[in-house]
Design a protein around this nucleic acid. Structure first.
Length: 555
RNA sequence: GCGCCCGUAGCUCAAUGGAUAGAGCAUCUGACUACGGAUCAGAAGGUUAGAGGUUCGAGUCCUCUCGGGCGCGCCA
């Protein structure tokens, strides 16, 4: 029995009590989804529900009396072994071992589909993250978003959404010219201009550009600058793409700010905003009246000199996303951009959309790295920033991704590199992966012994050990963890869940022998436990996939 | 000055308004001559920064205070 099935049974018991006149409620007052939780304390059974506490007030009764009425019916439900009333009115439910154990079959049968839900079926979501300038390597802040943004996308997909990962290329504006000038200066051996780009990577790019096109240095000055800028843009963008590829983060759309302008999207965006009546002219400039919607000041779209602002691109880009059919546009921004939240929400409202549904701006706090007790600030290649490659070089892709995803994005994060390379419990990615590898080993050994557990009779009722029940209970939580992680855009919940699952497996493994001993016959309990192992392995693998972290069979 | 985020065990951090606030690390004590000891069992560690409030119930929601981070351009 799955938690959802139990929740439905609880709801049925409540409705039955109402039908019998034991609860003075209208059926419409019963929540569509009853909350069923796994109690922290195993003495409280397999599951607990607080319906009685919730319904006591509307029923004009006390929680324990409501609990009595519900418990009496719930005890009759299939698969329910015991129902106790505890504390202020919690119902503690214990399932039959057979009913709980059937979950192992459910999971193994569902395979990679286990944990996938349909909550967001039919919803098109655009997740935009990183969106760096193509003028340098990706830094540590980008890296956090690369991991978290991709994990959010994966979790939303698991929850049924149709998701596009999008990278907005800031390839328009003065920073591009500064980039070109910096490359040119390096190639010609002159000084990098004020505010230009520093770091060894600029030299490398300049050398590559000249090597690929030696004639570039002989071009007229204005053509030469453009040539360096464009060549550097292409190389740097490709480098970012390759880096992200290696980081297991793959974008569906690379959207250039230049094409936003050249395609007429800006004009279409302005048209939309004008229709909605929020544009106005003042002091020779064109404005968007974002103060209609909680922004603290109105924003300029077209400057008095006729130039478009960066904000103009933002508005057009949002409208363009919606025109491309996305229902929900999620933006992941660094903490230094939190001032943009209200104006972006105002953009959506100005476009006639619902800022509480169609747009969502998530703010991520900064990341610091420590090594040897000191903060790491410098990158060999990129000057005074730490790059994605620096982190991966230190700890590997799996540990880097996992460590960045494991914490809520809105809390500042300090990574201790000395711990991340350790293969200890303090480095949970190994703890989780180890559980997967360990199960894989057991299943391999079963195969070597000629045991075909999938074809053997599986008696779920044999899984009645305390730690078997505990493991089954955790396995059963995945779909609900996915639901919470997707709804809250918090993939760290999946990571925390996997750690709990790994712990439950290790405890089970410590107490319960899976394979027959040296001279022992294959018993039904061995088969049942192999099913349980198979279910645990599948659940770990599915969860790790949602984080973009590998599930190794050997370590 | 205004706005956003944060404050939980010595450290790094969990906890969607639910039961005795949980893990890991660090400290101390233990466990296989059979399936991976990268594991498991146990001890110790807390006025959830502080003060009010909302309710059956608050680390969580509201108000204020203190402390820390960040942001407030016709820049991009």
């Amino acid at each position: 029995m799955t938690p959802d099935q139990l929740a439905a049974a609880v709801r049925g018991a409540v409705l039955a009590a109402i039908g019998d006149g034991d609860l003075a409620l209208d059926p419409s007052q019963v929540p569509a989804e009853v909350t069923v939780e796994r109690p922290r304390n195993p003495e409280h059974g397999d599951y607990a529900t607080n319906v009685a506490l919730q319904l006591a007030k509307p029923a004009g009764s006390n929680p324990r009396a409501v609990a009595e009425a519900v418990a009496a019916r719930l005890r009759e439900a299939d698969g329910v072994a015991k129902v106790d009333i505890a504390g202020p009115g919690f119902l503690n439910v214990t399932l039959d071992a057979a009913s709980l154990g059937e979950l192992a079959r459910t999971v193994v049968t569902a395979g990679e589909g286990y944990g996938r839900i349909d909550r967001y079926a039919g919803t098109r979501v655009n997740v935009e993250f990183i969106s760096a300038n193509p003028t340098g390597p990706l830094h540590l802040g980008h890296t956090r978003w690369a991991a978290v943004g991709d994990a959010i996308a994966r979790v939303l997909e698991a929850a049924g959404a149709d998701v596009a990962r999008e990278f907005y290329i800031n390839d328009r504006g003065v920073q591009m010219d500064k980039f070109g000038m910096s490359l040119e200066a390096r190639a010609l051996g002159t000084d990098v201009p004020e505010g230009g780009y520093q770091g060894a990577y600029v030299d490398e790019l300049a050398q590559q550009i000249v090597a690929a096109d030696p004639g570039i240095v002989g071009l007229p000055a204005d053509e030469r600058l453009v040539a360096f800028r464009e060549a550097g843009y292409a190389l740097q963008l490709q480098q970012q793409k390759d880096t992200l590829d290696g980081f297991n983060t793959h974008f569906d759309v690379w959207y250039s700010e230049r094409t936003l302008h050249s395609s007429g999207a800006v004009d279409r965006g302005f048209e939309k905003l004008r229709e909605q009546g929020h544009m106005f002219e003042a002091d020779g400039a064109v404005w968007l009246r974002t103060t209609d919607f909680d922004d603290d000041k109105d924003r300029v779209l077209v400057k008095a000199d006729g130039e478009l602002t960066y904000f103009a691109s933002d508005t057009a880009y949002y409208v363009d996303k919606r025109n491309r059919g996305f229902d929900v546009c999620i933006y992941l921004l660094g903490a230094d951009h939190h001032g943009y939240v209200n104006r972006l929400r105002a953009v959506a409202a100005c476009a006639g959309d619902d800022p509480d549904y169609n747009i969502e701006v998530l703010i991520g706090q900064l990341v610091k790295m420590f090594k040897g007790g000191e903060e790491v600030r410098l990158s060999k290649r990129a000057g005074n920033i730490i790059t994605l490659e620096d982190l991966v070089e230190e700890v590997g892709v799996d540990a880097a991704r996992y460590s960045l995803i494991r914490y809520p994005a809105d809390s500042p994060l300090t990574l201790d590199l000395d711990l991340l390379v350790q293969r200890s419990n303090d480095n949970p990615v190994f703890y989780v992966q180890y559980a997967h590898a360990r199960i894989s080993s057991v299943l391999r050994n079963a195969g070597d012994l000629g045991i075909d557990w999938r074809s053997a009779d599986f008696d779920a009722a044999l899984l009645d050990h305390e730690r078997e029940a505990a493991l089954l209970g955790v396995i059963g939580e995945l779909p609900r963890v996915v639901g919470a992680a997707a709804e809250l855009r918090e993939p760290h919940r999946v990571a925390r869940y996997l750690e709990e699952l790994a712990t439950a497996y290790h405890k089970f493994y410590d107490a319960c022998r899976v394979l027959p001993g040296a001279d022992a016959e294959l018993e039904p309990i061995n088969v049942a436990r192999l099913w349980l192992c198979g279910a645990a392995r599948q659940t770990l693998a599915n969860g790790l996939a949602m984080l973009g972290v590998s599930a190794p069979e050997r370590m």
